[in-house]
Design a protein around this nucleic acid. Structure first.
Lengths: 197, 197
DNA sequence: GTCTATAGCGCGATAGAC
DNA sequence: GTCTATCGCGCTATAGAC
């Protein structure tokens, strides 16, 4: 049953974190969205830290499921890299330019969230670094990607550009369009010729 | 007189914003740092929005003064670009890996800060895009930089990679070291051969 | 599993003395 | 320009009824 109260709370928490951040998200806001009283939330998640950690755990798992689909997709490494970049673009596109990656948002607030959350976020970042590194290596092997330097560090450049690109794009007139250009240019930098996906 | 109460308040506000964000920064925290009572802050900045806008205005002005020094520095365009990247690296370096760019942090929180702050942040981002674009063009002209695509969009890739790179690096063991590698790899991607600055 | 009620605190902001 | 005192609100969290 995917839509019991617990899942609805996680849905609402994720949506609010992506839009306004964890510090600006309250049990009162969640209660209004889900349609229960705020005290009832403590039955499902005793503390706010519990709620945030459960939300990030689910987010990480779901994100990696999308990544698996991308990785099992056809085409060249460069084309699969483009599909991976589009996972980030779709977040902006489907929220009218108002949602960040949940883990990017929480990364900004990490100093207020405790060491356990910092470790969880770092795990998400490192998992993505490994995914990008693999895509770059596969692209280099099939000739669709060209990396002039250290592949592992380049993967971190790409991930940072995605997280930061979303953040910066959000204040522009057309965030999704802006970010789409940035993602395309990132591909141009990493491929011998521009890809069209 | 650079250190009257107003400036001390702006110093403390900037430090807290860079570390924990605007939503986690309170008048009480500022009062403790500066050594006055929290009610006294309202004499200098009637509302928190006033304080944040003054802080960002000063931050923007000071940052562009550093940029001017970089731009009037010698060397190739690529070397001046490296010096510009180091403005961001130095923030992490000099804070033991705990401070972000103030405008990057506020960008994450923009949904809670009102439309005026969104406009102010966008102005900072666009100003930096123009600086990077100019440095890339100068580097292309003297042969030290190679941009395989649109220079203006590439400038946005670079800026996003800096803001996001700082954010992601903060959860790592050695944030400044990690970010330094990312900045160096960014240069490698944009130059025909790695620069050593 | 959800409710009402409330504790206890921190917040931004204001009034008015000095 | 800074102080004390206070207002009113929102917050996380808990107790105990149903």
């Amino acid at each position: 049953m995917p839509d019991d109260t617990r899942d609805k709370l996680l849905d609402a928490a994720q949506d609010l974190v992506q839009r306004v951040g964890a510090n600006a998200m309250s049990y009162q806001h969640l209660a209004q969205v889900v349609g229960i009283r705020k005290a009832s939330i403590h039955y499902h998640f005793p503390t706010k830290a519990d709620l945030l950690e459960a939300m990030v755990g689910r987010y990480h798992k779901r994100f990696m499921e999308h990544v698996s689909e991308v990785r099992s997709g056809g085409g060249t490494g460069g084309e699969r890299l483009a599909a991976y970049l589009d996972l980030f673009a779709s977040t902006l596109r489907e929220s009218d330019g108002s949602k960040l990656c949940a883990c990017g948002m929480l990364g900004a607030e990490v100093a207020t969230l405790g060491t356990e959350m910092a470790a969880v976020l770092n795990r998400f970042y490192e998992a993505n670094h490994r995914v990008i590194e693999t895509l770059l290596r596969e692209g280099a092997a099939d000739g669709s990607v060209s990396v002039p330097g250290d592949v592992a560090v380049t993967a971190r450049v790409v991930f940072g550009a995605l997280e930061g690109g979303m953040l910066v794009a959000r204040t522009a007139d057309d965030p999704a369009g802006r970010f789409g250009q940035v993602a395309q240019e990132l591909l141009t930098l990493l491929t011998l010729a521009p890809l069209h996906v």
